[in-house]
């Protein structure tokens, strides 16, 4: 409402930061724990991670996951095959569960790729300013104005079909967004008085960036990261759906949907489970991300 209150709030947070050290982090964790949605999301996500890790323990890849079993082909969901079987008689339950690892790995790694590119370029642009910023941001504009899915398709086509290339493609196509968020955030922080103060006491530029600017610009970047993990999982599934990325017969969820699509009329169950799996995973990430955003920036909530 008033400038006074604002100043008071700023002073308060600054004081809190300096006195209690990690108190801001604790505050965030405290608020996060109180958020039901975030906790449900985190729990579901943890379960999915465990499933992904235990995939090889639960199933034998050669026989259960990719082994053909023509006798049992195209069975509707039943007691033996909870999600039914595909056209090769492979158990969809095993394939969907085993597929978790692909989606998670792609989601994380590709986001890390975007984060790495975006964080470096964005903070350089935001902090340096001048022509450096101009060049970086114009390149970002170019990437931003290309539809990301088409860009990813082009990159996968150029690099060749493989899981690693899929990760790179999704990562590169989303890097521009990170770059923009980082720059905007750094730009805001750079203008603040405490950076001026750090400079006034003679701290080096590098130190100011690493110790002051980046840590204080992190909130929007963290929020962006969770959003992008969710987006990357969907993009990766989409690319696999088109037949790019993880080669068959690996049970990536997008590939499962792609195969099921051919049997849409007569065996619709084939596409239900993999799609639900994607949705639940993304939902869990989104729930957690939303909670995290509210915890970091509580003024949005109340």
């Amino acid at each position: 409402m008033s400038k006074n209150k604002e100043t008071a709030a700023v002073v308060e947070t600054e004081v809190a930061k300096s006195y209690k050290g990690r108190s801001q982090f604790r505050e965030v964790m405290h608020r996060l724990r109180k958020n039901k949605g975030a906790m449900v999301g985190l729990f579901v996500f943890a379960v999915i991670i465990i499933i992904a890790l235990l995939g090889d323990v639960l199933f034998d890849y050669e026989t259960d996951v990719i082994g053909n079993n023509i006798v049992d082909r195209l069975q509707s969901p039943n007691a033996n095959h909870w999600f039914g079987t595909d056209e090769m008689g492979r158990d969809l339950f095993a394939r969907v569960l085993y597929g978790a690892r692909y989606s998670l790995a792609i989601g994380f790694v590709s986001t890390l790729v975007s984060l790495g590119i975006g964080l470096v370029l964005g903070s350089i642009a935001g902090y340096k300013g001048g022509w450096v910023e101009n060049v970086i941001m114009r390149i970002t504009d170019i990437f931003y104005s290309l539809p990301s899915i088409l860009l990813a398709i082009a990159v996968v086509s150029a690099l060749g079909n493989s899981m690693l290339n899929l990760m790179i493609a999704v990562g590169v196509s989303n890097a521009a967004a990170f770059c923009r968020v980082t720059r905007a955030s750094v730009l805001t922080e750079r203008g603040k008085d405490y950076v001026e103060a750090a400079r006034a006491i003679g701290q080096g530029e590098m130190r100011i960036v690493l110790k002051h600017v980046i840590p204080n610009s992190l909130s929007p970047i963290i929020v962006q990261t969770t959003v992008r993990v969710a987006g990357a999982i969907i993009s990766a599934a989409g690319l696999s759906f088109l037949g790019l990325g993880v080669p068959l017969p690996a049970p990536e969820w997008g590939s499962l949907l792609s195969m099921g699509r051919g049997y849409l009329r007569d065996y619709p169950y084939m596409v239900i489970a993999p799609g639900l799996a994607i949705m639940i995973t993304v939902l869990a990430v989104n729930l957690f991300g939303d909670g995290l955003r509210d915890a970091i920036d509580p003024k949005l909530k109340k």
Partner: peptide
């Protein structure tokens, strides 16, 4: 939340 989390190509197939 659901709308944000649904892969739309899957939703399309469900609608079909």
């Amino acid at each position: 939340m659901l709308g944000m989390s649904m892969p739309n190509f899957w939703l399309g197939m469900m609608l079909i």
